[in-house]
Every structure is written in structure tokens, then in C-alpha cells.
Amino acid sequence: MRVSSTRAPVLFAAFCTALLQGCGGTSDSGTGGERQSTTPASAVRVVASTNVYGDIVRQVGGDRVSVDSIISDPAQDPHSYEASARNQLAVSKARVVIENGGGYDDFIGKMLRTANNASSTEVIDAVQVSGKTAPEGGELNEHVWYDLPTASRLADRIADALARADPAHGAFFHRNAEEFDDRLEPLLAEVARIKADHPNAAVAVTEPVPLYLTEASGLRDDTPAEFGAAVEDGTEVPANTMRQMLDLLEDKRVKALVYNRQTSGPQTERVKKAAAENGIPVVSVTETLPEGQDYVSWMKANVEALRKALGP
């Protein structure tokens, strides 16, 4: 079909815009569903194991980073994720890689071991940054992104790494990390208020994902240890353990149930139903960043939901 002379400039302009956008770098989909933004070709390439860390990188790096978050779909389980050829290519081009560590995202280590740029890639391990260790006789809770001070330290550590990769913008990265830290301060204050208002209040969790946040809030986890372990491992909860968990709710011995909706199954659904039937508030949490939120807004929503569940 012949294009009229009046439409041709418009179509040509649209084509040029699309072409330019296609050639530029982008902040990937691991930013809570936020619109992709064009980044310069000189941007520092970063790979993050999940969109939680990808979002923190984006907040620190701004348009000077190109972020590839490997896991952003709530249906993907980092414990069992198998990396793709695309993931491997991204890692092979990355200047900085952010992993959770602690056995949570072992696929990152596997890719790094076969990457041809391993010696020039700076790897940041969030568990190492956190300083968290396993309790004596127990297992490490690797879900360190639910620890707000760890997120603050991680942002600072990311700024350092980006500054080494792009020294000309070091001040920009460190200023953004400081702004990120400042945004966390009101949340830390709110967590402290919960601790003051509800000291040692009992809660139950479907698995250990939110425990750093509940512990910082001064709350006591009364969940039978075998319950959370079985759910996290994807195994059957023993009948006597399930009975103990249901008794907590039916006897109203906990003030809230914190429920990981990304790993729901018949047993956790049964527990959630029991909480609702007995008037126990349910606080839903996730392991990856919900669409449309950044790390701070997500954690703010979690803290507010926890306070609401506990009451005045």
C-alpha cells in the first residue's frame, strides 16, 4: 500500500524512535514491573539472582547500570532453578553479580564457574554482607533481604562495586546509596515501635522467610521447627507437627500467622484456613518483589501489614 506524503514523516519518526530504543540498554523486568528505561551503552552490566537485588542495584545505579534479574516470576523457586543459556550469557558479560548466597541461589555459582570473565567480575554475596551465621546446632536462615540493616549495607556495598567499575560516576552511586539508606530509616523506626508496643508477642510462620523482620520487631516465633523445615524442603509435614501448628491457631496462642504465598500448598492452605476460622490475622509475604513496587515500598507494606495484624 502506498504511504501518503503526510503520514510518511510520522511513520519514519516512529520507526527511528523504536530503533533507538531497541539498541539502548534497559533496566530489566526485575524491578517490580516498573517501565523499562533506556540506559547508555556504557552502563555497568549487572546480574542479580532475583529482582529484589536487581531493584536495589537499580536504585543505586540509576541509568548508569543495565540490570538483568534472573528470577522475577513468583512461580520460580531459586532453590531448584536451572539457569538458561541466556542467563549464562548475561553472567559472562557482567561486571558485577549479586547473589543471595547461603545455598539459596546456587545456580549463580555454577554459572560463574563456567563464565570466561570470572576473574574480572565482582561478586557480592548478600549473606556475607549481612554477617548472619547459623545458630549453634541449627541452620542458617538465608532470607537476609528481610533484614533491613542488611539491605542498607548491601546498597553501600553495591555503590562501592559500581564505583570501581565506573569511577567517573562513583559520587553518583554513593549519593544514591545514601538516599536509599535514608528511605529505610522510617521503616526501622516503625519496626522499633512494633517491638516497643508488642514485646515478645507470639506469631507463627509457614516457613522462615520473614523471620529477620519479625525478630527485629520483637516478636517470638512459636512455629514448630519441623513445620517450617518441611514446607521449605517441599516434604510432607509430619502429622503430629501439623497438629501442633493447628493447636497454636485453634487455641489462639499466636497473634498472627505470617504466610508465604509463593510456596502455598495443601498443608499451608490448611493452616491459613485454620487461622481465618479462629480470627487469627494472616500477613501474606513473598520472596520476590511484587509487580509495581520497589524494595522500600514492598518492605513498608510488609511492616504496615504486620502492625495492623498485631493491633494497637
Rank of each mutant, 00 (worst) to 15 (best):
A48C: 03
S49G: 13
S49T: 13
S49I: 03
S49M: 06
T50L: 02
T50N: 04
N51D: 15
N51R: 03
V52Q: 06
V52G: 05
V52I: 15
V52S: 07
Y53K: 07
Y53T: 06
Y53V: 07
G54T: 05
G54L: 07
G54M: 06
G54E: 03
D55W: 02
D55S: 11
D55F: 06
D55V: 12
D55R: 08
D55A: 12
D55N: 14
I56Y: 03
I56K: 03
V57C: 03
V57R: 00
V57E: 00
V57I: 08
R58E: 11
R58I: 08
R58L: 11
R58G: 09
R58P: 01
Q59Y: 01
Q59I: 05
Q59H: 09
Q59C: 00
Q59T: 09
Q59P: 00
V60I: 12
V60K: 07
V60E: 06
V60H: 06
V60C: 10
G61K: 07
G61C: 10
G61M: 09
G61S: 11
G62S: 11
G62D: 10
G62Y: 06
G62A: 11
D63K: 15
D63E: 15
R64G: 07
R64N: 15
R64F: 08
R64M: 10
R64E: 15
V65F: 02
V65Q: 10
V65I: 09
S66N: 07
S66D: 13
S66F: 00
S66A: 15
S66P: 00
V67Q: 08
V67G: 03
V67E: 08
V67S: 06
V67I: 13
D68K: 11
D68I: 05
D68W: 08
D68Q: 09
S69L: 01
S69Q: 05
S69W: 00
S69M: 02
S69Y: 01
I70S: 08
I70K: 07
I70R: 10
I70C: 08
I70W: 01
I71D: 03
I71G: 04
I71H: 01
I71V: 11
I71R: 00
I71F: 00
S72G: 09
S72V: 04
D73V: 11
D73A: 13
D73F: 08
P74V: 13
P74D: 14
A75E: 12
A75L: 14
Q76Y: 06
D77S: 14
D77K: 13
D77F: 07
D77C: 12
D77V: 13
D77H: 12
D77L: 11
